[in-house]
Every structure is written in C-alpha cells, then in structure tokens.
C-alpha cells in the first residue's frame, strides 16, 4: 500500500541545509496500523508529511496504493490528498472563521458538491463522533477534544484509504484519548491503512499496532512488526 525507498528530505534553514530524512525505507501494507515513534526532531513528522504528499522528497522513491508518486506534479498530489488520504494534525488546524460542519466539509467544496449535500455528509460523520450538537458552532468555540473530533471528521469526509495522524493524542485530555483510540480501532476494522506519529506510544494503543518504526536523527533506528524486530 505504502512504500518508501531510500527517501531523503532536506530543508534549507538560512545558510544551512538540514537533512530531515536520510535514506529512509519502509513499507506499510494495506489495512495495517503503523506507528512512527521517536523524539522531537527525529523526522517522524516529516516522514508523515512525505507520505501525506504535503512535501516532496529530495531523493528516493515513494509509492502510494501501488502507484509511484515520487515525480507526480503538484495537482496530482493534491488529488491524492483529497481522494486517498485523510490527515489529522497535531494542532487540529481547523479554520477559525468557519463553523464545525463547514470545516469538516472543506475538502468537498472544490469538488462542486452542493451546500446541502456537504452538510448532510458532514452531519453524518459528526453524529458518529457525537459532535452533531456542535455542528453550527464556530471552530474556535470548541474544546480541545471537540476540535480533535472535528479534525478527524474532516479527515474522513472523503472516505480515504489512508489515515495519517500526527501526534493525535498529545493535545487532548485523558478522556478524549480513549475516544480517539476507539475511533482508530473502528477505522482499522474498516480496513483503513493508518499511520500515526507519536513521541510516546500509548499502551492502550499497542494492541492495534502492526508495525512500529523508530526514528532518530532522520533515520530509522529500529523497525518492529507485531513485537518482532525486523
């Protein structure tokens, strides 16, 4: 489903060139849940962004759903982000000037779907996530946990095959952590491929995880599949 081969990613930071990823290779099969683990700055979020087509690798190759996308042009990558990938951000990243349901339905807007249809689809997801009563509240009026659920709903609006979550449990309270893990469990049951980046693996999530990839200084230091080291 997802294959990365010798990927490198460099950023220019002033006069210095920073290597965020260095010759990284990994593979995540369809329906698997993988966790990218490591301290801050280890490259796990960059890896997630690369897989999510938010940024491009400077070297190496990337396959998504059996299609090599390494040299895809920008608009093809955008189409992949829209149709195949649902991204849940660490800071939720809801747009403050829009209501909850409008935020959830943002990916549908350029597809020409009418406002009525967009609301119906958004409400369906919000109901599943127990957020329907907050549908018309502005995004900045929601609590942290509610914002996280809204962000999850937005990521799922196009029924993507791949779910990417960047530190999904770090900015919410304990009660909501349980809830998010349950959501991830449900998604895995539906056959979604899930990749989560986390600096700190929750024990309650361990049973879901098929593969853990440890990052350090932009490289993979260790990969484990179902508890076995690869």
């Amino acid at each position: 489903m997802i294959r990365v081969e010798k990927a490198t990613k460099s950023y220019q930071s002033g006069k210095v060139k920073v290597r965020a990823l260095n010759d990284v290779s990994l593979e995540v099969k369809k329906g698997e849940m993988a966790v990218l683990s490591g301290p801050s700055g280890s490259g796990k979020s960059t890896m997630l962004n690369v897989i999510g087509c938010l940024t491009r690798i400077t070297g190496g190759r990337l396959w998504l759903a059996d299609q090599e996308v390494s040299h895809f042009p920008d608009h093809f990558l955008a189409a992949i982000r829209r149709e195949k990938i649902g991204f849940i951000f660490q800071q939720f990243n809801l747009l403050s000037g829009y209501s909850t349901w409008e935020n959830v339905s943002l990916p549908l807007l350029p597809m020409g779907i009418s406002e009525k249809e967009r609301r119906i689809r958004a409400m369906k997801l919000l109901e599943e996530l127990n957020l329907e009563t907050r549908a018309d509240f502005m995004a900045n009026e929601l609590s942290g946990g509610e914002q996280q659920r809204a962000a999850i709903a937005r990521a799922l609006i196009n029924d993507p095959e791949i779910i990417l979550a960047d530190e999904p449990l770090s900015n919410i309270d304990t009660g909501h952590v349980r809830m998010v893990i349950d959501i991830l469990r449900e998604l895995k049951k539906k056959g979604k491929t899930i990749i989560v980046s986390s600096h700190d693996t929750q024990p309650s999530m361990a049973s879901l995880v098929d593969r853990t990839v440890y990052f350090a200084s932009g490289e993979i230091s260790l990969q484990e599949e179902l508890g076995e080291e690869l």
Partner: peptide, 17 residues
Amino acid sequence: DITNPADEQYRLEKKVY
C-alpha cells in the same frame, strides 16, 4: 526535466502556475 529532483521540479512547477 522530469528526471530532476522532485523539489527542483516543484520550484519550476510553481512558475508554471
């Protein structure tokens, strides 16, 4: 050049936009 590194191509794509 389609074989350019991806970020170099991306920079050129921006100009095409």
